[in-house]
Design a protein around this nucleic acid. Structure first.
Length: 192
DNA sequence: AGGAAGATCTACT
DNA sequence: GTAGATCTTCCTA
């Protein structure tokens, strides 16, 4: 098991968003281990990105995006916690939103956290996956490169896959670029 | 005090 | 498949 290092996150959010696809998210809880494969992400920048939390400048609640890469940045939107990982070149600002995952380990626990019939609906959206994994603000700012953290990201050999991209989902003001990336054909991607 | 926000669920045509 | 209500912070006035 290899944990992704700090350098991995100290690159452009776009590169990190693409490279996070296929990696494994692992959550160590008292009740056991939950893990899932990342299948959909979006890149966000700083001031120049109108959809970014950091767009209006540094504030107490968004300062994590300005600080260390490789840490979580979790915030609430429409009653849902959304999970981001801070990623940017040193001295820059940015992050990657985890939009969808595929459950690997602890599926029963996730099903208990959410009332759905279809496994497909369990984690196929940014607010869904945080509920399934029981991620809240308590985990805000933790270091996903530290093996002692409750939440880490690990590199694992998986099958080959093809990456598709699109505009970002649900944002009121997007940039004229494709900043959303997902594994082509994966069932857990929130939207084709 | 009020409203917007990177969404989800439910109930319809 | 699309539309509308509602979810809970944190910012801005």
């Amino acid at each position: 098991m290899k944990i992704l290092s700090r350098d991995f996150y100290e690159r452009s959010p776009v590169e990190v968003a693409k490279d996070l696809l296929g990696k494994t998210l692992m959550l160590k809880k008292n009740s056991g281990i939950l893990s899932a494969k990342i299948v959909e992400t979006e890149a966000y920048f700083g001031q120049k990105d109108p959809a970014s939390r950091a767009h209006t400048g540094r504030k107490p609640y968004n300062q994590l995006m300005f600080l260390d890469s490789g840490k979580t940045f979790i915030y609430m939107v429409h009653g849902n916690w959304l999970l981001n990982i801070v990623a940017h070149q040193k001295g820059s600002v940015g992050g990657v939103l985890i939009r969808a995952i595929e459950p690997l380990q602890g599926t029963e626990t996730m099903l208990k956290n959410r009332h759905v019939k279809e496994i497909r609906d369990l984690t196929s959206g940014p607010g869904k996956l945080t509920k399934a994994l029981d991620i809240t603000k308590d985990l805000n700012g933790i270091d996903v490169t530290d093996r002692d953290s409750e939440l880490i990201v690990i590199e694992e050999q998986g099958e080959d896959f093809e990456i598709s991209s699109s505009h970002r989902i649900g944002v009121t003001a997007d940039l004229p670029k494709n900043l959303r990336f997902f594994i082509k054909g994966n069932k857990f991607v929130s939207k084709a």
